[in-house]
Simulated scan of single mutants.
Amino acid sequence: MDSLPRVSRQVTLAAHPEGQLQSAHFTLVETPLPPLGPHQVLLRNRWFRISVSTRLMASREAKEIKGIPFPALKPGDALADAAIGEVIAATPDSGLQAGDTVLHSLGWRDYAVADARQCTVLQRERLEPAAYLGHGWTAYAALTRGTHVNRGDTVFVSSGAGAIGSMAGQIARRLGAGQVIGSTGSPGKAEWMKRSLGYDAVIVRDGRPIVTQLAEAAPGGIDVFVDMVGGEQLTAAVALAREGARFVILGALIAELNAEGSTSIAPTEIDSFQLPIKGITLRGYSACEDDPGAFDEWMQRLNEWRHEGTIHLPCTTFSGLDNAPKALQEACAGRLKGVVLVEL
């Protein structure tokens, strides 16, 4: 026991960002590790996830928000997110032992003391971090619980290169979509989305009206819209919706990543008369709140699809805890692809 670490390095919020988030808004500190209490384990983190929602929760006016699995931050608070760690010490009543690999919620640090009852044991063989830390299950739940895809549907996915969107386009195809359209912020990512993710067409936010580009990509209209962005893209989707179209709203990046400052308010102008005329259903959805049980089903489907070679897990990985703030800065700037992970 004398060889166990006595301190943990962790990333804390140094100051609330004003405008664009920078890595300088965070600092790396050492904090003493408490002794283990009942049902607790000491973990050495191996990987943790970077979520752009951290930008919103680091804002001065942030409050707890349904669907975001970590609290609002004040200066001095340690960040947290989903992580994979190795048990290096455990109390007898924890049910775990040294060497176990677990999924837990205390990322953004190298060591963590966690309640074993809040940890999920993972198989170490062929462990792929992006499968457990990625948002494929969020996309899967949205497309099978939040809404549904009929064979031949035209599906539009906003932020199609991001953690959710990079999986949603692939999953929609596996579920029978006939055409899959995405959106992104750069031509380079658009080409990658078509080449690597199988998107049929990609709308680039290049100043041209989104509704014009969407009409060109889907002249017959869209049946399903998976939205992480809001704003002009939601407006365009309503305008181009077919009769009986289904919208599932997972977030509003136009507010979370607003250049003037992150906010939870995302005003959008839509032609609401189109909703009853076309019979459009529009549902706000949070997989972790509404259907957490979908995760196990997703992992089973993922294994099947990966065995068939019909799906992959896009991921951008940074190395070292020191680089975690930079990873968040780059993710919030829209420069990265897929789920963003830090490997320790």
Rank of each mutant, 00 (worst) to 15 (best):
V238H: 00
P5N: 07
G37M: 06
T54K: 12
G95N: 13
Y285D: 07
P219S: 08
V41Y: 01
I88Q: 08
L214N: 00
I203M: 00
R117D: 14
D227T: 13
L234V: 08
G207M: 00
R151Q: 04
G231F: 03
I249Y: 11
I254N: 15
C315H: 07
H16C: 10
Q118G: 14
Y132D: 08
D100G: 12
I277F: 14
L214G: 09
R283A: 01
L302H: 07
A324G: 03
E330I: 04
F225R: 11
R195A: 12
A131V: 06
L21F: 10
V211W: 01
V113Q: 03
A236W: 11
G334D: 07
V211E: 03
L43I: 04
T317N: 14
S158G: 11
A80V: 02
S158I: 00
G152V: 07
S262G: 14
R195P: 02
E128G: 02
R44M: 05
P71A: 10
L79N: 10
A217R: 05
I164P: 01
S186V: 05
E128Y: 01
E260C: 09
T235D: 13
L214D: 05
P34G: 03
G198I: 07
A161M: 05
T27L: 08
A163R: 06
I181W: 01
R124H: 13
L33S: 04
G244P: 00
R145Q: 11
S272W: 11
I181L: 08
V113C: 04
P325T: 09
E330S: 00
W298S: 04
R174V: 12
T144Y: 03
W47V: 02
P314C: 09
D77H: 14
V204S: 10
I277D: 14
H312W: 14
A114M: 06
L313F: 15
P38Y: 14
A217L: 10
G293S: 13
I203A: 06
G244F: 12
R306I: 00
L106F: 15
I249F: 08
R173E: 07
R174Q: 03
R301Q: 13
R55P: 05
V339D: 06
D322I: 09
Q10P: 09
F70S: 13
L302P: 13
L282C: 00
C332Y: 12
L344S: 04
F48W: 02
R117I: 14
T316G: 02
A62I: 08
G251K: 11
I280E: 10
T154A: 04
A172K: 02
L313K: 14
K189N: 01
G107N: 07
G279R: 03
T120E: 12
G279D: 07
F225L: 04
I280Y: 00
C288F: 06
G169Q: 04
S53V: 00
G160F: 08
A177R: 05
W47P: 01
G279L: 01
V41K: 01
V87C: 03
Q274A: 06
N323H: 05
G176W: 14
D227V: 15
T120A: 12
R283E: 11
M1T: 15
Q10E: 14
E269P: 01
E243P: 15
P219K: 13
T144P: 02
R306E: 13
M167H: 10
K278C: 04
L96I: 04
M57N: 05
T12L: 11
Q233M: 09
